[in-house]
Design a protein around this nucleic acid. Structure first.
Length: 264
DNA sequence: CTCGACTCCTGTTAGC
DNA sequence: TGCTAACAGGAGTCGA
């Protein structure tokens, strides 16, 4: 599913859409427009415009227009894909359909050269907004520093995994990245976020960076070593112990009771 | 302010 | 075989 890793891949793909004149906007699904945006407002803001930058903060993809202040925010939910000129940056998305139907196009930008940029999202959990609130998101997971992790994430009694999924504290981590990172760092997901010692905090950040790099290289958040075993009856890829399956932070959570002991 | 519970969405899959 | 219900999780809202 799209987590920060997929959005980064989308961002690179979106660079192909820069510096091209926008001639029309298709909004076949008005539900997909968020933050009070209307089809008319989006057209007024974008037609005749061109994008000059594709940025990412967490799971939010931001396209900057050439005019001052014009920003388009793209969200992909758990099943949304970005397609530029009929080229999808990512073919496979966990939990999404393996089919590829044009009827799932929720938002399309047409360029003067005949190409286009579109969001194809079967489950409609993504969305498009004008002038998204970037500051509502925490520091991006790809660049978070040890001190920021300590002060913004590793605090309080809330389960560590719930903290990692809280986009206001650190942006870009979804369920699969969280489970893989905690498993590799050998830390129990239910540990109070503020209970980690310095060694564990260091391990967590080191593994987070490694997971993000590995997943980006391998093509998505479904490429983790734990992924195949994130099913009922799954076993730890290292020690073959039966994995624990719990709900933490409102999300299904798999962890190894031997490699991720409750006490640090 | 925090934080858990609930809700939204729909393709896929397990189970009868 | 055909149907139903459960499941997946990102993000917003709400109430304690």
């Amino acid at each position: 599913m799209p987590e920060g890793v997929e959005i980064e891949i989308y961002r690179v793909g979106a660079e192909a859409a820069l510096d091209r004149e926008i001639t029309s906007i298709e909004t076949p699904d008005s539900w997909f427009l968020k933050g009070g945006a209307t089809p008319e407002a989006v057209r007024d803001a974008l037609v005749g415009e061109h994008f000059v930058a594709a940025r990412r903060r967490g799971k939010l993809l931001i396209l900057d227009g050439a005019d001052d202040g014009v920003r388009l925010g793209l969200r992909f939910g758990m099943t949304g894909r970005l397609i530029v000129d009929d080229e999808a940056s990512i073919d496979y998305l966990e939990y999404s359909s393996q089919r590829n139907e044009a009827e799932w196009d929720r938002f399309v930008i047409h360029f003067a050269d005949g190409g286009d940029l579109r969001i194809r999202d079967p489950r409609r959990l993504g969305g498009v907004s004008l002038d998204p609130d970037e500051e509502a998101l925490g520091v991006d997971a790809f660049v978070i520093k040890p001190r920021q992790l300590r002060e913004q994430v590793l605090v309080g009694d809330t389960a560590l995994k719930a903290r990692l999924l809280d986009q206001k504290r650190v942006a870009g981590i979804g369920n699969l990245i969280a489970d893989e990172t905690l498993w590799r760092a050998k830390i129990d997901p239910a540990r109070p976020a503020g209970s980690l010692d310095d060694r564990e905090a260091g391990r967590l950040l080191r593994q987070l960076r490694k997971v993000l790099a590995d997943f980006t290289r391998d093509g998505g958040s479904h490429t983790g070593r734990l992924q195949d075993q994130r099913v009922r009856g799954g076993r730890c890829p290292i020690c073959k112990a039966d994995l624990d399956r719990r709900e933490i932070g409102g999300r299904t959570t798999f962890s190894c009771p031997r490699h991720q002991p409750v006490s640090g």
